[in-house]
């Protein structure tokens, strides 16, 4: 029986069920232990159930968090590390980029690194330049890292399970504004495999490919556009590495018009990669140039008026879709 639950609770349920399923799994990160239970309270209650051995607070030491996770993963454990904010990956970048991403390759296939780095990103809370970035493109650019970006509680739970069971490192990007959103989640065990896109709304005139919280914006825009008789299909790739290109291309073959929306800044964003892929594989299907809607090329400003201004809005998406149709 599906139940309605929050994104936060769905993530916690995935962690809990996996901790029960496999003794090699453990969590580590800053302030994740009870009674605090994590800055966004995802791990609340898990220390009480599993003890401090398997739900471990760390010092404020991002290099150690990620590097220790790697060392443990290479030697038989299955760590799920938490970086409180994606921005702090900056402190840990050597371990992520030079070590974690490359370990199997550099060793000629000898070692595996079954680890997950859970973190959250995004704007919406006036968290300013060092607490609100969207950095998926930076990770996706590094061969060796898988990058997951769930938007619904269903996807969050199923994809976190997939990430934990994956033999390879996965960067798992939650969104700070999604934790309180709700959705249906089945009671029984399920997995949402990485690399399988989801058509979040079926339509015929324009395809919007959106990631993370921007899926919700795209769905709102689609609703508004429907009133004007415009039928929008919303495709959520769910993970950008691996990427389910076929679902996106299939949609494009139907609508012949494509928009990509993400909260990360436009320049060198993931949307540019999608544009290039479409050029390579589906150029003849396009009836109009691909449209990108993304954040403006600035650090995230603090003032709410400015933050709202730099981040894509539903209105911008609506206007963009109309542009695509003229």
């Amino acid at each position: 029986m599906p139940r309605s639950m929050t994104y936060r609770d769905a993530l916690r349920e995935a962690l809990r069920e996996e901790l029960i399923r496999d003794e090699r799994i453990f969590l580590l990160g800053e302030d994740i232990e009870d009674p605090f239970g994590g800055t966004y309270k995802v791990t609340q209650g898990l220390t009480e159930e599993f003890g401090h051995d398997r739900v471990r607070n760390t010092p404020i030491s991002e290099i150690a968090i990620t590097g220790v996770a790697l060392g443990a993963a290479m030697t038989g454990m299955r760590p799920v590390a938490e970086l409180m904010y994606v921005d702090f990956a900056g402190c840990a970048m050597d371990q992520i980029m030079n070590q974690i991403a490359k370990m199997r390759y550099m060793s000629g296939g000898q070692v595996e690194a079954p680890l997950v780095i859970r973190t959250q990103q995004g704007t919406g809370r006036s968290s300013a330049a060092q607490h609100a970035q969207s950095l998926e493109a930076m990770f996706a650019h590094i061969p060796g890292l898988k990058v997951a970006m769930p938007v619904t509680p269903y996807d969050a739970k199923g994809m976190l399970k997939a990430a934990i069971r994956d033999p390879d490192p996965v960067i798992f990007l939650e969104h700070k504004l999604l934790y309180n959103t709700t959705g249906e989640v089945p009671e029984e065990d399920y997995v949402v495999p990485l690399g399988v896109a989801d058509v979040k709304r079926v339509g015929t005139d324009v395809t919007i490919v959106a990631t993370s919280r921007m899926v919700l914006h795209a769905l709102d825009a689609a609703e508004i556009l429907a009133k004007d008789g415009i039928s929008v299909e919303v495709v959520d790739p769910r993970s950008i590495v691996p990427l389910d290109q076929e679902t996106i291309f299939d949609s494009l073959r139907k609508t012949h018009r494509l928009m990509v929306v993400h909260e990360a800044v436009e320049r060198n964003g993931w949307g540019a990669e999608l544009c290039a892929l479409v050029m390579d594989h589906c150029f003849d299907e396009l009836d109009a140039p691909v449209k990108r809607i993304a954040s403006k090329n600035t650090p995230v400003p603090f003032a709410p008026v400015l933050e709202n201004f730099v981040v894509p809005s539903v209105e911008e998406i609506v206007a963009g879709v109309k542009d695509l149709l003229v």
Binding site: D87, F88, C91, A128, A129, Q130, P301, F302
Partner: peptide, 22 residues
């Protein structure tokens, strides 16, 4: 208004800045 509580700086006073990164 671009910094907020965690990023106040003031050049004339030699304040190189608060910081969001520990």
């Amino acid at each position: 208004g671009k910094g907020g509580s965690m990023h106040i700086s003031c050049r004339e006073l030699g304040i190189l800045g608060a910081n969001g990164i520990v």
